Simulated assay, not measured.
Amino acid sequence: MNKILIADHHYVTVKGITSILKCINPDIAVEHVIDKESLLEKITYNQYDLLILEIKIFSNIFAPIIRELKGLNPDLKIMVFTESNEDLIIPYLCGGAQAYLYKSATKEQLREALQSIFSMGFYYQQELFHDLIHKMKGGNMHPYTSLERLSEREREVFYYLVEGNGMLEIANLLQIHQSTASIYKKHIFEKLQINSLAELINFHNKHKVYMSHGNEFE
């Protein structure tokens, strides 16, 4: 791999990753973007071997980000390197990412991840899968509890509700009428067979690993 793009708004993170990459291979060319617009432009007009992605540069980390990027460059390898504490490893890996690593990882773990991608084309952190297996054994997740039955707009309303926004706030955020937002909320409750906001939040906390934004897991 000779050309790598880092998408992250934290300067220190970018410098640290670049330093590790140069230690692995001094000839690696590293570029950097800090927002979604710059990222999409770079991916559209340039070829990269690897994208190291902080998903928080997107306004909605639950959106089908990987699918969008893969659509622009199907051969692009993507390593999610994030500070987000959402349980998104399965949706992102199933969506096409080759690696998923939290920023709490040590320098050695990051180096191991990068070397694994360079040599094998992927990296799966053992600790994350250990946690996943324990959650599955505890009955906290089931693939059929995804949000696939909701429309794209309903999923947006869903997440804003979970974040604690009221109907007026959601209407303003989505630039729709408050009555329209209320209709979306009603449809969400009906489709998920829940009766209250408390149940909605419980649904999110229990099944969020399998939430998706399309016909496939992201």
Rank of each mutant, 00 (worst) to 15 (best):
M1P: 05
M1V: 09
M1T: 08
I4R: 00
L5I: 10
A7E: 04
D8R: 01
Y11W: 01
Y11E: 14
V12A: 15
V14H: 05
K15S: 10
I17T: 06
I17N: 01
I20S: 01
I20T: 14
I20W: 03
L21K: 00
C23W: 08
C23V: 13
I24M: 05
P26W: 00
P26H: 03
D27N: 13
D27C: 09
D27R: 05
I28Q: 04
V30M: 11
E31H: 13
V33D: 07
V33W: 06
I34N: 07
E37M: 10
I43N: 01
T44V: 09
Y45D: 14
Y45F: 15
Q47E: 15
L50M: 12
L50W: 03
L51N: 03
L51H: 03
I52C: 06
I52M: 09
I55M: 02
N60A: 08
E68V: 10
G71R: 04
L72E: 06
D75L: 15
I78G: 02
I78T: 02
F81I: 05
E83A: 14
S84I: 07
E86C: 08
D87L: 12
D87G: 05
I89L: 14
I90N: 00
P91N: 02
P91Y: 00
P91R: 00
Y92N: 02
G95N: 04
A99Q: 04
A99N: 11
A99H: 07
L101A: 04
K103H: 07
A105H: 06
R111P: 01
R111G: 09
E112N: 13
A113K: 00
A113H: 03
I117M: 10
F118Y: 13
G121K: 09
F122C: 12
Y123Q: 04
Q126K: 15
L128G: 00
L128T: 05
F129W: 10
L132Y: 04
L132W: 01
I133R: 11
I133K: 10
K135M: 11
M136L: 15
M136C: 12
K137V: 13
G138M: 08
G139D: 08
G139M: 09
H142S: 10
P143S: 04
S146L: 02
E148D: 09
E148H: 06
E148C: 05
R149F: 03
E152G: 06
E152Q: 09
E154L: 07
R155Y: 02
E156S: 05
V157D: 00
Y159A: 04
L161W: 04
E163G: 13
E163H: 13
M167S: 11
M167D: 09
E169A: 15
E169Q: 15
E169Y: 06
I170M: 06
N172A: 15
L174I: 08
L174F: 09
Q175D: 14
I176D: 00
H177L: 15
Q178W: 06
S179Q: 14
S179I: 14
I183R: 08
Y184H: 13
K185H: 07
K185Y: 07
F189A: 08
K191F: 09
L192C: 12
L192M: 07
I194N: 00
L197Q: 14
E199V: 03
E199C: 10
L200T: 08
N202M: 11
H204E: 12
H207W: 11
V209W: 01
Y210I: 10
G214C: 07
N215A: 12
N215E: 14
E216Y: 03
F217Y: 12
E218L: 06
